Computed example of a mutant assay.
Amino acid sequence: MQSEIYNRIQDHPDFRELVLKRKSFALKLSLVVLVMYFSFILLIAFAPDVLATPVASNSVVTWGIPLGIFIIITSFLLTGIYVKRANTEFDEENQRIIDECLHGR
């Protein structure tokens, strides 16, 4: 009985669309984070002077510090965006599909 319900859910066209939508969204956010991190590493490797430049004259803070903090905060924010969307839109759609398959609508 349970495997029959799982098969109905997996075969549901809205479920397949939901899976593609969720994967696409996660991939886009992951690519943003990866580009940021790899760009930062490449900047360290090939243009370290840029990150070593002080933010202002007579400042001990270099551009590497705020850029690193920006990358970390942006990563947290993107994670929050994914969680928010997953807990609302994706979960609601998933529950609708499950209810539809369980109750035979």
Rank of each mutant, 00 (worst) to 15 (best):
N58M: 14
A86K: 12
V55E: 03
E92S: 08
G80K: 05
V60S: 13
Y82V: 13
W63N: 04
K84S: 04
F46I: 13
A56W: 07
W63H: 12
K84F: 00
A86N: 08
D91S: 09
F46Y: 08
A56Q: 12
N94S: 13
V83H: 07
I41H: 09
T74N: 06
N94P: 09
T74H: 02
V83P: 13
A86P: 12
I81Q: 07
I72T: 11
L77M: 00
R85C: 07
I65N: 02
R85W: 01
L77T: 00
S39D: 14
L78R: 03
G64D: 05
V55L: 03
L42G: 14
A56I: 10
I73Y: 00
L67R: 00
L51Y: 15
R85G: 04
L43V: 07
V60L: 13
D91G: 11
T53N: 14
V83L: 09
S75P: 05
I72K: 06
T62F: 05
R85Q: 06
L43T: 13
T79K: 14
I73W: 01
A45F: 01
I72E: 08
T79E: 09
A56Y: 10
F76V: 12
T53R: 15
W63A: 07
I73N: 05
E92I: 10
S57C: 07
I44L: 10
K84Q: 02
A47S: 08
I41T: 15
Y82S: 15
W63Q: 06
A86E: 12
S57E: 06
I81E: 04
I69H: 01
T74S: 05
T74W: 00
G64I: 03
S39E: 15
V61F: 07
S75C: 04
F46W: 12
P54V: 00
I69L: 02
N58H: 08
P66G: 11
T79F: 10
I41A: 10
S57K: 12
I65G: 04
G68M: 06
A56G: 12
R85S: 14
R85A: 13
L51S: 15
G64A: 05
G64Y: 01
S75L: 03
N94Y: 04
L42T: 13
Y82H: 10
G64Q: 05
E93R: 09
V50P: 05
I73A: 08
E92H: 08
T62L: 09
F70A: 11
T88K: 09
L77W: 00
V83R: 14
Y82R: 15
V83I: 14
T53Q: 10
F70S: 11
S75A: 08
A86L: 10
F70V: 13
A45D: 03
E89W: 05
W63M: 03
A52T: 13
K84E: 00
G68K: 08
K84L: 02
I72R: 10
V61M: 10
L42W: 09
L77R: 00
L51G: 15
